[in-house]
């Protein structure tokens, strides 16, 4: 028994089955990420002053990852075009490039960006104790200029005892009155060697930059995590299509393989498309 229209198109719709299927799947994906982005919007609108941090992510690395993903979108569409022109060799190379791009993206994310965040420390100061830490927060000047107050001291946790945290400060808290610190920097500034002592009783909450840190990191880790799972899924599918199994399919029916690549390519472009929105929303704005 054979299912009709797996490779050829049905005359009245002009489409083969998997193409209808993948677009429906992408429609559901639009709704899935729609739900998550709507959460992002409302959390951000609702965030109390000072509770939505800025400039905590590594912009050059993020930009590089964006470029890698765009590049992989180009290579996958070229892989598909090569198949259409019946150039298997070229297809094979383009596919390999796509897979590598996906792997690099994931490696950067999981082995570099995320762990770096896990090492970073932040302590939210209780409202009544904010004055005590004015030299790290610089709120007097910020209020004057109409800027959001700072309520958190961040850096690397040097040591802690029952009463205090010792934190190697981020430049923002090391020189809070320097106007250059009001704006995020393209190249992230390294943690200074200036150590601040924060009493635990003045601290409302202290955590590493984990999902629990704030609504910002919660949505960052959730959305990039889900996006990363999509990248992983795409890479696995591409590996399957790059392995010798597909060569046999190609020899039997090149159009079938081209269709498969087109469908998985559509998915991959969608993953790229989501990242195009994720990147500015979390890294830049």
């Amino acid at each position: 028994m054979e299912i009709p229209y797996t490779i050829s198109t049905r005359p009245d719709t002009g489409l083969w089955n998997a193409k209808v299927g993948i677009w429906l799947f992408l429609a559901s994906e639009v709704m899935l990420f729609g739900g998550l982005f709507s959460a992002y919007i409302f959390l951000r609108i609702d965030a109390a002053p000072g509770m939505w941090p800025h400039g905590l992510l590594n912009v050059p690395v993020g930009t590089m990852n964006t470029a890698i993903l765009i590049l992989s979108s180009v290579t996958v569409v070229l892989a598909w075009a090569s198949l259409k022109m019946r150039r298997y060799r070229a297809y094979w190379w383009y596919m390999l490039a796509t897979i590598l791009c996906g792997v690099i993206f994931l490696t950067v994310k999981l082995a570099y960006e995320w762990p770096q965040k896990f090492e970073h420390f932040g302590a939210y100061i209780k409202p009544e104790a904010l004055g005590k830490y004015e030299k790290y927060l610089g709120n007097e000047r910020r209020t004057e200029k109409g800027l959001e107050p700072r309520i958190e001291i961040t850096g690397h946790l040097h040591s802690q005892n029952a009463k205090e945290y010792e934190v190697a400060l981020d430049p923002v808290n090391a020189e809070p009155d320097n106007p250059a610190m009001d704006r995020p920097h393209f190249f992230p500034l390294p943690v200074t060697d200036k150590i601040a002592t924060i009493e635990k009783e003045d601290v409302e909450r202290a955590t590493m930059f984990l999902p629990t840190h704030s609504a910002y990191f919660a949505s960052y880790f959730t959305i990039t995590g889900l996006h990363g799972m999509h990248v992983l899924g795409g890479v696995l599918v591409f590996i399957y299509m790059w392995l010798p199994v597909s060569k046999r399919l190609y020899q039997r029916n090149p159009e079938h393989l081209a269709n498969r690549v087109e469908v998985s390519g559509l998915f991959w472009h969608f993953v790229d498309l989501i990242w195009i929105f994720v990147f500015p929303l979390f890294y830049l704005l």
Binding site: E29, L32, A39
Partner: peptide
């Protein structure tokens, strides 16, 4: 199902988090 379930899936992922 295709268009209404995913937002709940998003919500469930968030509640799981």
């Amino acid at each position: 199902l295709v268009l209404a379930f995913p937002p709940l899936e998003a919500a469930i992922i968030m509640q799981l988090m």
